[in-house]
Amino acid sequence: MIAAIGLLLGVFLGLLLQPSVPVWLDPYLPIAVVAALDAVFGALRAFLDGIFDDKVFVISFVSNVLIAALIVYLGDKLGVGGQLSTGVIVVLGIRIFSNVAAIRRHIFHA
């Protein structure tokens, strides 16, 4: 319940404040958001499995975001930022898909 409220609150705040993305954050934010989404879906799956741990969730969330940003940074420095970003997105997308599949199995038993 509180989690759902938190999500709504964040979206609402974003719509209300309409913050502009700082330039230095611009390349990292999209990847970071996708990584955070991966962590969220993983946490939801773990919760449905009955093995949710908030500590694990926090750590995985933060490390996901940081590693994603680090990969993009590294890619930028090496001159392969676009490709690395694509790779990260692909990997995270696959993970999100598998997590969502597991969640679906839990909720719909199918």
């Binding site: 938190g6 609150l9 979206v11 705040l13 934010l29 955070a36 969220v40 969730f57 969330f61």
Partner: peptide
């Protein structure tokens, strides 16, 4: 979870 989801929602929007 609510706090982190708020962060995700904010950043996503």
């Amino acid at each position: 979870a609510g706090l982190l989801l708020a962060a995700v929602g904010f950043a996503g929007v």
